[in-house]
Computed example of a mutant assay.
Amino acid sequence: MDTKKLDLNLLATLEVLLEEKNVSKAAARLHLSQPAVSTQLSRLRDLFNDQLLIPARRGMIPTAKALELRAPLRQALDHVRDTLTTHQSFEPEKADLTVMIASTDYLQSVIGLSIIEAIRKHAPGIKIGLRNLEPYRLDEQFMNGEVDLALMTQEEAPSELRTRHLYDEVYVLIGHKDHPLLSDSMSFEDYLSLKHIVVSLDGGNFLTPHDLALKELGYSRNVVLSVATFLIVPELVAKSNLVALVPKRLVNGRTDLKIVSPPMSSTGFSVGMVWHERTHNHSAHRWVRDVINQIMIA
């Protein structure tokens, strides 16, 4: 490759094309005309001696060479961006970037809106993308720039990622507000006999860590329903005689539910921020992490 022909703007265009896989969408993001992006794509093809993106029925498909380039290209451009921003004082009100945050639906529900409001109050040009957490793909997503920050249990994060503790969560037992057996003084036997809902993120599993702990002690509870998300559990419980163990923050302020401590304590979990080295020193991403940390401390 003749590096004299190298144009940083071309590489920035390639980065966006690989993300959008569509010339029109890439042009909109880059604030360029479609013919201008098509011309840049032609120059990129000459530069790398590869088609890079092949027209398909919907959008474009990256070639094997393009897929190989995606991660190192993103890292190289991130280093350039970090170098520029590190030597500038960060001004939130002038920031213009997108931050992709991965988390469970529970966390999107309990703190997602607070994060969005706090960030956009001071930095209206920052766009927040919330996406579902995929723990098994997280390392790859960080490397490819699909995710900038994850909110999750720190112990489940890949060891090479950076983390910061946010808060500790506990479980409470919920039922409809007039449930006759639900109380802080209920017996252990009554607790086991209640009709329980459990949450299995993979779907269809009736044994949670709490049930495994009960099993080791020689007990089992009456589990009648398994669902794939915490978000529908309060509504199911409010309209039936079913009960469920749920994170306390999920039901704070609910007046249509009876909320008690379970007779057998259920191990809670910690929530933290997780991020990759590529954004560690980036001033805008540092600011976003600090804002989230302040929200949780307040």
Rank of each mutant, 00 (worst) to 15 (best):
M1S: 14
M1Y: 12
K5H: 11
L6F: 09
D7F: 09
L10M: 11
A12T: 12
A12L: 14
T13S: 04
L17A: 05
L17W: 05
E20S: 04
K25H: 14
K25G: 09
A26P: 04
P35R: 07
S38H: 12
S38E: 12
T39A: 15
R43N: 15
R43W: 11
L44C: 08
R45S: 08
L52M: 04
L52E: 03
G59L: 08
A66I: 01
L67C: 12
L77M: 04
L77D: 08
H79F: 11
V80N: 02
R81E: 15
D82E: 15
L84M: 09
T85F: 10
T86E: 14
T86K: 06
Q88T: 12
Q88F: 11
E91T: 11
E93Q: 08
D96A: 01
M100A: 14
I101A: 04
T104M: 06
Q108C: 02
S109E: 15
V110Q: 04
V110W: 04
S114D: 15
S114Y: 13
I115D: 14
I115H: 13
I116W: 14
A118I: 09
L130T: 10
N132W: 10
E134N: 04
E140A: 13
N144S: 07
V147S: 00
L149P: 07
L149W: 07
A150F: 04
L151Q: 08
L151A: 11
P158T: 01
E160P: 00
R164F: 06
D168F: 01
E169T: 11
Y171V: 00
V172H: 08
L173N: 05
G175C: 03
D178V: 06
H179T: 03
L182N: 08
S183K: 05
S183L: 07
L192T: 01
L194W: 05
I197L: 07
I197T: 06
I197Q: 03
V199T: 05
F206A: 08
P209R: 00
D211G: 03
K215A: 14
K215W: 02
G218W: 03
G218H: 00
Y219A: 11
V223I: 09
V224G: 00
L225T: 06
A228L: 06
F230S: 07
E235F: 13
L236C: 04
L236K: 00
V237W: 02
S240W: 10
L245I: 08
L245P: 06
K248L: 09
R249F: 05
N252M: 14
G253Y: 00
R254E: 09
L257G: 02
K258C: 00
P263K: 01
T267S: 13
V274L: 02
H276A: 13
E277L: 10
R278Y: 10
R278W: 05
T279H: 12
T279W: 08
N281R: 04
S283E: 13
R286E: 15
V288F: 07
R289Y: 07
R289H: 05
D290K: 13
I292C: 08
N293M: 09
